[in-house]
Design a protein around this nucleic acid. Structure first.
Lengths: 188, 188, 188, 188
DNA sequence: CATGAATGAGGGTTCATTCAT
DNA sequence: AATGAATGAACCCTCATTCAT
């Protein structure tokens, strides 16, 4: 990926996270990326496209981290615990990205719908870990979709609350708390 | 409250929920409310104010429902369970409002910050129920803030996923699921 | 019609005739009309619409002049001669409009196609006069469409050439010339 | 002329005739010519220049056809009739070019003025034929400039109307019609 | 000769807000 | 209290042209 495209990406993450999609100005992105405005449009079709590319790359990166991080582990229970840890750390490592992610998923715009489809891939991973845990006898029978969605909900909302300044916890504390809650509610 | 103000409120909820804050047009609100655009500005200072009034009223209404619904109950455990039920039902009864609420809380805009402060009142209620449950020996010791935040996260995210069409559950199923998860993760 | 709309129309004719549709700037139209740019868009949907309204009004005005001017006359021959005179005078009276008319009719843009449909109404009038002249025995048999189109061609091109500075004739001279050519080529 | 220049010319005619000067994009011309955009600017100074070169070549080609076609003929009358036939056929043979020619001659842009100067050469030829016809006693006395301009007007407008789909005639029918009209209006 | 990434001035359109009536 | 015509700053995107390679 060319240097300029990288700079545009970085600037876009910065600006989108600070202002949200609608209020983010292409002028500002260009300025922060130190490229001419036209350069952005040479590489991306539109504001929407640059936004979606960003999200896609971010989610895929997280999914890859999850796949890599859980590969050495054998049991579903271990994988789920690891997955929680990875997600929380990811959120704290890429605060800006997460702020975009979680403030722009809900809505009826075309881009937001495509957006949620990407997230499904992530939720599917969580479902797989839970399902394995159930088959291995570690977890009780629970609705997979609802449970995966719940886990994602706990992680996102507690982390976001912290990042947005309403709560004051470290990633480790949050990881520990979420793992514990999930463990208790799933264990036989 | 005058008839026109009511109509403006109703139209605003409709429009904000369909388009989000930024893409909602004052023209459309005026048209749906069957008032002239100037009339809106006679009653409200700005788009932000009408939006915030809306949110404030909604959250206060939910808080009142929670207070009323839990008043006849004595134990913290019962109150928390009831609170979950009330929140899920509220979300499903006022889908439009909830979509606004949950797609506009995250962000750094002034209105979004004030917005989250309102939500704190709600979270405080949940904390109170949990704290009472702990003191009554029904619940284990747990961080109150993180736990309340988690409960809010589970409820919001699973309900939203359902309303947005990614999941397919009834309010009763979701209530049941959330109550069960929370019960298991809190019980001694 | 409100004062502002009139001013916008006048400014638009001025600007479109000087620069053509594509190079005409809405900023300049607004400035010449002494209104804010937004005001134009309050009254017209788009640049295209203001342009088309202009053309439509102009052509209808010409058609009305033709209808009124030929009403007192009885024979087709007299009507055709009068029609030539009216058109030439109209072109010279409304130079700017004619420049727009004749420099923007040819093309495949949507607006240009709608544009030509308007012109058909004018050509149909000419056809009627010719047809009447034939039935009255003054004119020889000739293809109506081709002849009407030819008359329009002679009038437009000679007048335009004059207006654009390549030729140097008065409206009277042109009228006289065209009438004579047409008379000779149609008479039995 | 190099292969690439030819391809650029061909692509330019195609694109200019489809979209007109203003809406024609250099990107599209480059794409259709299968050259890089920079290559066009290596061979031509600007969009205007490529456009003008095109027109110049086209008009000169038509003038050459007229000169060659009328050379074997001796009388002005015969030459004028032949000239009409040649022009109509040229228009139908090079529809795209003619659409450009006739939709871009009218206007006050620098290029359009230079453009009309080229056309004068063509009109001068027509004038010469008419003048010769008059001297040879075949034609009546008539203003040369106005008559030449009229002939050009009839040919262009009827042909264009046909090419643009408003009329439905063959080149032969149009030639026959124009020749007849002109003959009648010029003969003694 | 040829390329194509990069530029940036420019333009049509939107829309929250104002204010004279 | 209510209106709606008017405003103008703001913004996304286009595209002819340039220039380093």
């Amino acid at each position: 990926m060319s240097k300029k495209i990288s700079r545009i990406f970085a600037a876009a993450i910065d600006v989108f996270s600070k202002f949200g999609f609608e209020k983010a100005k292409m002028d500002l992105i260009a300025e922060k990326a130190k490229v001419a405005k036209g350069t952005i449009y040479y590489h991306f079709k539109s504001k929407e496209e640059i936004f979606f590319s960003l999200i896609e790359e971010g989610i895929n990166q997280l999914i890859q981290l999850l796949n890599e991080g859980t590969k050495p582990l054998s049991s579903g229970k271990e994988k789920l615990e690891k997955a929680i840890e990875i997600q929380v750390n990811y959120i704290f490592d890429y605060k800006d990205f997460t702020k975009i992610l979680l403030s722009e998923v809900w809505g009826s715009e075309e881009r937001q719908i495509r957006f949620r489809e990407l997230l499904q891939k992530l939720l599917k991973l969580l479902q797989n870990y839970i399902e394995q845990g159930i088959q291995e006898g570690d977890y009780r029978q629970r609705d997979l979709e609802l449970t995966a969605s719940s886990i994602f909900g706990i992680i996102s909302v507690t982390s976001l609350h912290t990042l947005l300044g309403q709560l004051n916890y470290t990633p480790e504390q949050i990881t520990e708390h979420v793992q514990s809650m999930i463990e208790e509610s799933l264990k036989k």
